[in-house]
Each structure stands twice: as C-alpha cells, then as structure tokens.
Design a protein around this nucleic acid. Structure first.
Lengths: 218, 218
DNA sequence: TACAAGTGTTAGAGCTTCTAACGAAAGCTT
DNA sequence: AAGCTTTCGTTAGAAGCTCTAACACTTGTA
C-alpha cells in the first residue's frame, strides 16, 4: 500500500463517515455527494474521483454495514458454550447493533435502495452471519426423514453453504431464528411499538426465551 | 360534495395513482411531483394546489396503504370461525397483500420516510389491523397471574385499545403473531431469501403452522 | 352583474447529480 | 535532473428537482 493509495483510502473513509452522519439525520435520501464534499472542504465534483456516483457510495455503505453486523454476530457466539447461551448472546448482540444505529440496520433490511444489487462481496458477510445463527442450533434428536419440498431446498442450500453435518430441520430452525429476531427488531427500529406503550426490549427478550425453550426441546 | 370538490378528489387520486407507479419503479425517492404533473399534462407547480409539498403526498400514500392493509386483514378474519382457521386466513391475506405490492408494504414497515410522523388518522387503521390479529387468539386456558413489567404494560395497552376481556397473555400472543408474520414477510419483500434458493412461501407456511400449533395449546 | 374562490400559467431561486475541460501536483522512468 | 504519466482538484454548465411569487383565467355565488 503506497502513499497515494493510503491517502485515497483516507479520503474515501472520511466521505463515508460523513455520509453515515447524513444517513442518521435524514435517511438514505439525505445523503448528498455535494454536501459531503463541502463539509470536507473540497468542491462537489472532486468526490467523483473517489466514487463513480451516488449509488456507488451507498453500495459501499451497505457492504460495510453487512460486514460490521456479521463481525458482531460472529464475535457474540464464538468462545461460548451451549446453544442456549449462544442464542442469548447472539440475539442480544444483534439487537444492540440495530438499536445503536437503526439507520444502518434499515440500510440492510429496510426498503432496498433502488439500483442496488447485492454484489458477490456481501455473500461472504451473509455467510458469516448465517454461520453465527447456526451456531445456536441445538442437536437434532430425531432427524426427520420426511422429504418435503422445503426440506429438499434446505438441503441444497446447506450443501452450497458447506454447513457440514446440519440436518434440514436444523437449517430450518436457523432460518426461523433469523426471521423471528428480525421481526421484533425490525418493528422496533421503525418505531412501530411506540404507539402501544409496550417496551420492545421486553417483547424481544420474551421471543428469545421462547426460541431457547423451543431449541432445548430439540 | 359539489362539482369542484369532486374534481379536486379526482385530480388528487390521479396524482396518487401515478405516484404509486413511480414508487413501484424507483422507490420512495423516485416519486417526483414534477414528473407526476408532467404525466398528467399540467406544469409542475399546478400540483402544489393539491398537495402542500412532496412530503404531504407521501403521507397520503402511507395513510391509504395503512387503511387498505387494515381492510384486507379485517376482511380475512371476519365471517370465519375458529382461531386456527382465522389465523391461516389472516396470514395468507397479509402476505398476499405484501407480495402483490412490496413497495407499498415497505412504505409502511420499511425505512421510515424522514419527516413523517404517524398522524392520528392512522391510529384507527392500526387499531383495526391489531383487532384482526387478536381475532385469531385462542382462549387462555390458564390465565397467568404473574405480574411482570411486560404484562403490566400489555394490560395498559389493552385498556387503551378497548379489547374487552383479553388477558395480557393473549395480547402478548397477538404481538407475537404480528412480529413473526412480519419477520418472514419483511425478509421476503426485501429479497433476502433469494440467495438461499429457499422458497419464502414454504418458510412462511411453516411459520404459520407453528403459530397455529402453539395457539391450539392455549 | 360584480365579486370571490379556485386553478392554471410562467419566472426564478436554490438545491441536486454528474460530465467536460483545464491546471497543478506528485511519482516513475529514462 | 528532465520529462512523461497518473492523480487530484478546480470551474463551467447541462439537466433535473422542490417550492414560492406573481399573474391570468375560469367557475360559483351573492
């Protein structure tokens, strides 16, 4: 990494940092290349040497967020023993990440930014997230030999993901964990609980315990 | 309703209709007052006689969507007997509505449009949606007399909503139904299942059956 | 018939993304 | 060291956007 390249990285990072602030303040639509440049002390068109266009900047933000979330989830489950413990750690970490930066969570799971197509780079991050989820899966005490369409698709997915010895039932459980945690978190970060007066954290914790109880049944 | 007012309604409706097309094509950011006006055969500023500004137009779209979804859910559970049947009908209707117009579902539950604050008018719609969900709740065979914080908050919410004789446990179940259905639907409409090759409909149906089974246990 | 209300127009300020052309600085090669 | 190439920043400008102001025309009412 020579000098020029390092400087280039710094400029890109600073632009992204400011973009994240704008994102938090005014949503994805509030991110303006022009305004970022102004705050960096350069003119608007200068930034186009660093990002092909506004969409490219957004794509970078999304990729970073994917990786950051995957890191967080992975770190939460590693060095922990027992699927119940791992489940609680994973769930807590995931929600904490989302609550700390709702706009970033919504960048990943909210309204998709138009023109964005998940690039191959995010595949690795998605894979790491899912691996973290699958670490919380308990053992399959009575492997189902039912061969439904869903189980066949799950089997194919498992092979593609190289998940080792996990049964379709376990993979299905992983997806269920994912959808249920996301269900609560998503409604919380979009503010859908505020009208009810019910504390979303308590709802979330109850959902996690329900998952733990179900998981311990095998 | 005199002539002028009727004409005014028509103009507003046409503008909203075109806005929905733009929404489907390019997301919320793709909605342009100017472009709508041009397609209607008038100049840009003319539309500002009908909507105070772009945000007001978006707010109208959101309100309409809220009401439409509430109508759909309400219609799904009414004239049906048995909580399991009602649950399946509600879930199917909710998902069908979301899949048929993902952009509209995301207008409600995706990234919130900045500057939008849920007006009182949507309260009624939210209430009707929740009532539909609560219709699928089975009886509470052993009412918990546990007095946790969550149950106290649920109780207060129930009184505010005038839900009649529903116990906190039943209200909690209603919220759980809501978050779990939303969890799967939300990930489906944002395209998060596509990489897995697993059919979201099958995942959704499995989740519904899991809810039905849990509900029948009381 | 006269007046008021409603609806449309053009002009324009101020913002945006993004391209084109130009000048200056930094690094590499001979 | 001299010269060439790559990189980076500038200004100018096209084309779009939201939204306001001022003006004209049509419609409904007193």
């Amino acid at each position: 990494m020579d000098r020029r390249q390092r400087y280039r990285e710094q400029t890109r990072d600073e632009a992204k940092r400011i973009a994240l602030e704008q994102l938090a303040e005014a949503g994805p639509g509030g991110i303006s290349v022009n305004a970022i440049a102004k705050r960096m002390g350069v003119t608007g068109p200068a930034l186009y040497r660093y990002f092909a266009n506004r969409d490219a900047l957004l794509t970078d933000l999304i990729e970073d967020a994917y990786n950051d979330l995957a890191d967080t989830m992975q770190a939460a489950v590693v060095h922990r023993a027992g699927s119940a413990t791992q489940m609680r750690a994973l769930a807590t970490a995931m929600r904490a990440w989302a609550i700390a930066q709702p706009h970033r969570y919504l960048l990943l799971f909210g309204t998709p930014v138009p023109g964005y197509e998940a690039p191959i780079e995010t595949l690795a991050a998605a894979h790491r997230s899912m691996t973290a989820v699958l670490a919380t899966v308990g053992e399959d005490r009575e492997p189902a030999n039912r061969r439904s369409t869903l189980y066949r698709q799950l089997g194919a997915w498992g092979e593609k993901m190289q998940t080792g010895e996990l049964t379709p039932k376990q993979l299905h459980w992983g997806i269920t964990v994912w959808t249920r945690l996301h269900g609560v978190i998503s409604l919380e970060v979009t503010g859908q609980f505020t009208l009810t007066g019910v504390d979303p954290e308590l709802v979330f914790k109850a959902e996690v315990e329900s998952l733990v109880a179900w998981g311990e049944r095998g």
